[in-house]
Amino acid sequence: MAAIDEEVQLLGSVGSPFVIRVQIALKLKGIEHKYVEEKLGNLSETLLKYNPVYRMVPVLVHNGNPISESRVIIEYIDEAWKQNPILPSDPYKRALDRFWSKFIDEKCTIAAWKSVFMPDEKEREKAREELFEALQFLENELKDKFFGGEEIGFVDIAALFIPLFQEVAEKQLFPGDKFPKLQKWSLDFYNHPVVKEVMPSKEQQFGYFKARAASLAAPSK
C-alpha cells in the first residue's frame, strides 16, 4: 500500500483505455489514490498545468510530481512501489515487454481506432487490414495464459484495447476464429478480478469513444 505521507492522484476520463491501464496498475500494486475526472474538450487548468505538452489524460501526480503517458506512468508505478511487479526483473524480458507494448500502441491501437471511427469505408477497411496484420504478430507471441505468464503483466495491460474495442464494435472487430489465442486471452483478461473491478461499463465506454471522436473532430481554437 502507498505510505500514509504519500499523495497519489490520477487525472483521467472514464472509459479511456489509457486511463484504465493506469488504474489496473495501481490496483495490482494496491496503491490508494484520489481519482479526478476530466471532461474531454473542456480540460481543467490543473490538467493543462500538469501536462502542457500533450494536454491529455492520464496524468499521475505523486507527491506533487506529475507523470504523463500511460506506459511511462505504469513503469514509474512499477519502480516506485516494489510489491507485485508488473514488468519482469530480467533485463532482456523487460526490453521485450517494452518493445511489444510500443508495438501495440503504434501498430494496433491506432489501426483499431481507425477501423471503427474513420468516416470513409475504404479507409476503415484499410485500417482493419493493417490491424489484422499486427494482431497476427501478437497471436504468434502469446505463449501462456497471459503475455506475462500466469499473471497479467505490462504487455497485457497495454493490450487491453482488444477487449475494449470488442465491446465498442459489438464483437465484430476481432473474430475469434481468426485469432483464437487472442480471443481466449481477451476473455481471461476481462474476467481477471482486478480488471473486472476497474473496467467501465459498456455504456461508459461508448460515451468515452463518442466524446473522444467529437473532441478530435472539433476545430482547434
Rank of each mutant, 00 (worst) to 15 (best):
F132D: 07
Y92G: 08
F137Q: 14
R128E: 03
W100Q: 04
F137K: 15
Q83C: 08
E151P: 13
F146M: 06
I86V: 07
C108A: 01
L131I: 06
D78W: 09
K126E: 15
A127N: 11
P88E: 02
I77G: 03
K107M: 00
M118D: 15
E130N: 10
N84I: 12
F147E: 02
A112M: 08
D105K: 09
D78C: 07
G149I: 09
A127V: 09
F147L: 07
S101P: 01
A95H: 04
A134E: 02
K145H: 08
E106R: 14
Y92N: 05
A80S: 12
K102R: 12
I104T: 02
G149P: 07
E129Q: 15
K82Y: 01
G148V: 08
K122T: 14
R98L: 00
P85D: 06
Q83H: 09
A134V: 02
G148S: 04
F132L: 10
L96V: 14
R98P: 00
E106G: 02
E151V: 12
F146D: 15
D97S: 13
I152Q: 01
I104K: 01
V116P: 01
N140R: 13
K82N: 09
W100V: 00
D144K: 12
E139G: 03
E121G: 06
A134G: 11
F99P: 12
E130P: 04
D78T: 10
L138T: 03
C108N: 01
L142C: 03
E150P: 06
T109A: 13
G149F: 01
R124M: 06
I110F: 04
A134W: 01
T109I: 14
P91Q: 13
K107R: 13
E106D: 12
E151H: 15
L87Q: 11
L142D: 06
F137V: 15
Q83P: 08
F137T: 15
R128V: 04
A111P: 06
K114I: 12
A134M: 04
L142G: 13
V116A: 07
A127Q: 11
